[in-house]
Design a protein around this nucleic acid. Structure first.
Lengths: 191, 191
DNA sequence: AAAAATATGGAGACGACCTCCGTTTGTCAA
DNA sequence: TTGACAAACGGAGGTCGTCTCCATATTTTT
């Protein structure tokens, strides 16, 4: 990560093959296989797999990064074109939709989130930033209360990720988003 | 579970020793050891450990059950003595406090929740029931909206469990509870 | 073209999990 | 009390996934 020397041609080819196969398996929800077998499936040796991705989590994170970037880009786009509250609503609902459209991926990510939060250090921080930005904008517009931080919203998202692979959870996920959105509106009366 | 014949004296003694040692380790957050070593630590053989608790999750669930029962009892007690909305608020804040007072335990439970939700089948269902009861009572009293189910609230609780062992998450957990409580109030205007 | 640098792959060491069964302990009827 | 039967013990060792290591192959540089 610190060295930015370009990968040798074959190294890059193998790395791409691993990522492609991983993405395919994540999407179909069958990533609970032997790590060695995964290497075989991607057409590389065990050593090669481990050199590129020392752990399952490292591989998952690499796959995850693109997804996460897309989600964050979407958030920034919404932030630029809509009032903050609407942007946030659209973003959260979109997030849930995306999750349920990629259940295998989401399930894997939930496991990773729960087992080692450090895995998400970089990507998670970016997500945290866009949510924070959306909330801040909302506060400035007077559409969102000022006494609840982005962390609380992130916590709810994490909860959704953790259980989204359960049958019939979709309605609850939407319900949770609804609670967050309505809960975020400024309180009418004084404290 | 189906046979209710009383355990033989030594069996009961060993089972209790395992539970006691497990509770101790859970509380100190060091339950990531070899399962075999845990048996040794509790002073029983590997076979005995596996006979009583076939999996790590089974052991955790046994420890968890008492905690969960206490939490549910508390919820019912509140439900009987306070208006639903206040009972719910008190319950959720109490839940969070309890979690942060037993971080090791909570962390372990979060992992279990995420990895195999079936583990919580019984206990989780009971928790679901008391939350549902609280919400239902609130709806009848007109203090809680009717279009959000207990599952959504449970999802948030799960999110809190999943991240409560992170430094500085306590404030966010309280924030999440605040969002839920305020989000649950009936909407003022029409849909 | 040949030397240097980089990457490959899969055999096998390692370590955790869990089963199996000979031995021990507890229970109960006589 | 004692004998016999049932229940439980415990830990040695089989099984299986993880990960390392290095002789070989490929790419890049000179």
């Amino acid at each position: 990560m610190t060295t930015d020397r370009p990968l040798r041609a074959d190294a890059r080819r193998n790395r791409d093959a691993l990522l492609a196969k991983a993405r395919e398996l994540f999407a179909s929800g069958c990533f609970d296989m032997r790590f060695d077998d995964f290497a075989k499936l991607a057409g590389v040796g065990t050593g090669t797999l481990y050199r590129h991705f020392p752990t399952r989590a490292a591989l998952a994170e690499a796959v995850y990064r693109e997804e996460l970037t897309a989600i964050c880009d979407r958030a920034r786009e919404l932030r630029a074109t809509l009032p903050a509250m609407e942007a946030l609503a659209e973003f959260l609902h979109g997030f849930v939709s995306h999750l349920y459209a990629n259940l295998g991926l989401a399930g894997t990510l939930a496991t990773l989130m729960a087992s080692r939060t450090d895995t998400l250090a970089d990507g998670g921080r970016e997500l945290d930033r866009v949510v924070t930005d959306l909330l801040t904008a909302g506060v400035e517009e007077g559409a969102i209360r000022a006494d609840v931080s982005a962390g609380a919203v992130m916590m709810v998202l994490q909860g959704i990720c953790a259980v989204c692979d359960q049958r019939g959870s979709r309605a609850d996920a939407d319900g949770a988003v609804t609670l967050v959105l309505d809960g975020l509106r400024p309180r009418v009366g004084p404290a």
